[in-house]
């Protein structure tokens, strides 16, 4: 698991090893907190039990390393959270409305959207959020090419497809603005959402 990259310089290897250790400590910490919350209170017994369970999980179910080299931006996180809650409510009411509308059969479409920041973390977060916000659901992902195949519900014409593509781009930009690195943010902001081709 601690196999160094073939062309890594010593400092890079050390940093990635430190990064992996940090990831593992974070995972154990989160699992211990979750365990205590599940039991309803924090106690020494729960702390020890949580550490035991977390150790078992981390050792026996290792996850592929997800590199996080971005930074958390308070402003970006706030904007993201507010917009996310608003859109979750809007999307829910929309789907609920067409669900109970008598005799209405919604048409749909599948569009392919290439993300501008092709990291695993960005792909996963964008896919996750898109499934919860207006009209979109991920059907398939292409990790190599960083392409998301998005199912769009309730399509009335080509304008809705354009809007869906735009929506994907906006969600990606908001996520990068909240947790991406400076370079990724520049990459996302360099192309205006409206003027893009697919």
């Amino acid at each position: 698991m601690t196999r160094p990259e073939p062309d890594a310089t010593p400092t890079q290897g050390m940093r990635s090893r430190l990064g992996r250790r940090r990831d593992r400590v974070l995972a154990v910490g989160w699992l211990v907190v979750a365990w205590n919350l599940f039991w309803g209170d924090f106690s020494w017994a729960n702390l020890l039990g949580g550490l035991l369970v977390a150790a078992v999980v981390v050792v026996f179910f290792p996850l592929p390393p997800v590199t996080f080299d971005g930074r958390l931006r308070l402003r970006g996180l706030l904007v993201f959270t507010v917009r996310f809650v608003g859109e979750l409510i809007r999307a829910s009411l929309h789907v609920a409305r067409i669900a109970v509308q008598p005799g209405y059969v919604p048409r749909s479409a599948i569009v392919a959207v290439r993300l501008r920041v092709p990291t695993d973390l960005n792909l996963a977060l964008t896919a996750e959020v898109l499934s919860l916000v207006p009209g979109t659901l991920i059907v398939e992902t292409d990790r190599q090419a960083a392409v998301l195949y998005v199912h769009v519900l309730d399509v009335h014409g080509p304008a809705d497809l354009v809007a869906a593509r735009r929506q994907v781009r906006i969600v990606e930009r908001r996520i990068v603005a909240a947790v991406g690195s400076n370079a990724e943010l520049r990459q996302v902001l360099s192309v205006p959402v409206d003027k893009e081709l697919s």
């Binding site: 829910s92 929309h94 789907v95 609920a96 109970v100 059969v105 919604p106 749909s108 919860l132 009209g135």
Partner: peptide, 30 residues
Amino acid sequence: LLSLAAAVGVLRFPDTLSRMHAATKPQVLG
């Protein structure tokens, strides 16, 4: 009410892909 609407959507939408929309958005908010 939202959970009810989600259930109605799962029942009424024409295909599986559309049904999953009902199973994610109103259901989660509910």
